[in-house]
Design a binder for these strands. Structure first.
Lengths: 342, 342
DNA sequence: CTACATCGTCGAAGCGTTTCAACAGTCAGA
DNA sequence: TCTGACTGTTGAAACGCTTCGACGATGTAG
């Protein structure tokens, strides 16, 4: 292993000079800098992460808790992770993967100084992990939005607003009885933050417009077809559907087309999903994009800022955007950006 | 921060004694051990990972390179990751996420002593990263199977054998013209290891049986339907289909049912995908499970053994299993385990 | 020409572990 | 009773880096 001492010797300078060249924390003459940089290159030196973290009391690693629970949308999770990793790297941070849903994994990483900060996904409305997290020294950011007093910075897509936006669109198309075909039952049951907020926005918008709206759990499989049939059987006059379930979307779409509830002439669906999923369905659907990768990079930005000592933004919500595909004039209706602070 | 010195003082012993209690590398009297353990518990001590890695020259972290390229099956990737993380934890290892496809990310992690070993997914038949990896000090395991001289331990599902097995089944059902509906074109184009091997096994089995077999790329979207139509148009007599594309499966299934190529009475499909995907399709299909999580934990086992200094097994392939769902007697045909070594 | 910043560099003191060599104490065998 | 082996414990030396304080050398103002 090549150490900083080897570099120092090769360059004919002291160890501290090499260190200062690398960190830029002191002014160094151009000639010295060049000699050191050349020595680093020739020897292929890269500093020992452990030694560095011991001396500097920081690791340049962020712990990322990702959900393994059933019912979560892997596609979206992966995109969020992608966004986090890529953006964290631009700030010079690596990602340590934490998967156990039990918060002791995070505690272990934090107390063992393995990470400088924690990023937690798959937040529930009343998440039991938050208690543990508040006692840690490292800054923490939630991807999601718990209910009640928010003691911790949060980043997420504005699902509540997305509910309003979808209802707006369905109303504009003349629908007066709406259904939200949502996440699998287990996701709703544990009050996953995004599902709760979407339902809240959807129902509030329906109530505000004095229109009937109902929320339905839906499995991520072909059984989604059955759910559609049940919803229609329960209220045959339902004509507008907000679908928030990536895996179920193809099935729901197919069934609604079959039963004449959706066509390009008479559209009845707004899909809430990543763009490529909306495009992969055999026919046009209006959709609100879940900007999963953007959520990830926003979260990475926030947490890196916090590590750098900047004050966290409280809550940062990414505004939804509706893309219309069912009218002949294809337009992207951008919604005003709603970055709120708490 | 509470250090080992605090624990030592609290317990009334020396620092080294505390260290030996934790590592178990020396015999300690029961009374001392208890005192130390109590002190650790009261103070809530957990050792500083950086200091530990500096002194012991090992990090207890494994770097995992996961693919972000287009066309890969996120579902399968996630399951592999799950398996890796869970199994690595049982060996006391954490996972550092590396996502850049450029091998310099891995080099950085390795040379900076951030990881004790590397696990690389999404291997291509002639993977350019392997050259870089061989020059690293840390042991490396590939999840996948490159062609040619294998200088590195590999773990994977036996896709080649799966090709044979699928053909066996289709032949047994009386099919004589077979098609493999496979991965997206970009995956085939870059010669992703599993796609190559599956095609090889499939074609070899067809040739051995003196039967027509063809391989087709297929996008992971509703356009899969078009691919089915093209395949059938090109050779209307094709009756047996091996489908290896999780996202396309529902569409391919639907189209083959519509066109009368598949029904429970006259089955024409073998699906190669995770079990739950095969079960989510609206009707019975025979399937060969891709045991993604098992691949992940097998890889974790191998790499942990290597770190522990045990000799690697060369190549470890997990044998495929066919599950028959289209006959009235539902049986799992287990294939003889084929763990080969190179 | 002196006084005083400023600049570039260096020596050395940590950072919190692990682990080696050594050392008291106990015990069994001669 | 003495010797040697073994047990349980300890002090101190690494491990490779960051960073503080100090120190000449140079430039600038009085």
């Amino acid at each position: 292993m090549v150490t900083i001492a080897d570099v120092a010797e090769e360059a004919g300078v002291s160890i501290s000079t090499v260190s200062y060249v690398m960190s830029g924390k002191r002014t160094i003459s151009p000639t010295t800098r060049q000699r050191v940089e050349r020595a680093i290159a020739t020897l292929g030196f890269s500093p020992h992460a452990g030694a560095r973290s011991l001396a500097s009391r920081s690791t340049n690693v962020i712990g990322l808790q990702i959900p393994l629970r059933s019912g979560v949308d892997v596609h979206v999770v992966m995109e969020v992770v992608t966004g986090v990793v890529a953006q964290a790297r631009t700030h010079g941070y690596d990602i340590l993967l934490l998967t156990s849903d039990d918060p002791r994994g995070m505690e272990r990483a934090a107390k063992g100084s393995m990470v400088d900060a924690l990023l937690v996904m798959d937040i529930e409305s009343d998440d039991p992990r938050i208690g543990v997290l508040t006692h840690l020294e490292q800054p923490t950011v939630l991807i999601g939005l718990p209910e009640g007093r928010r003691t911790m910075p949060c980043v997420d897509f504005d699902f509540e607003e997305a509910g309003w936006l979808a209802v707006d669109r369905l109303l504009a198309q003349g629908h007066r009885r709406l259904a939200l075909i949502g996440s699998p039952a287990e996701v709703l049951a544990r009050h996953t933050s995004y599902a709760d907020r979407l339902a809240r926005g959807f129902l509030a918008a329906c109530a505000a417009a004095n229109v009937v709206g109902s929320v339905h759990a839906c499995p991520s499989s072909a059984d989604a077809t059955a759910v559609v049939d049940e919803v229609v059987a329960a209220d045959p006059q339902v004509t507008g559907f907000l679908v928030h379930n990536e895996s179920a979307l193809p099935h729901v779409f197919a069934r609604l087309v079959e039963t004449g509830k959706h066509s390009s002439a008479k559209p009845g669906i707004v899909a809430l999903c990543p763009e490529d999923v909306a495009l992969s369905v055999p026919g046009p659907v209006d959709s609100i994009a879940v900007p999963a990768e953007a959520i990830g990079s926003a979260a990475a930005d926030v947490i890196c800022d916090m590590i750098a000592g900047e004050t966290p933004p409280g809550v940062r919500l990414i505004a939804p955007t509706l893309t219309v595909r069912t009218s002949t004039d294809i337009v992207a209706t951008k919604h005003p950006s709603t970055t709120r602070a708490t």
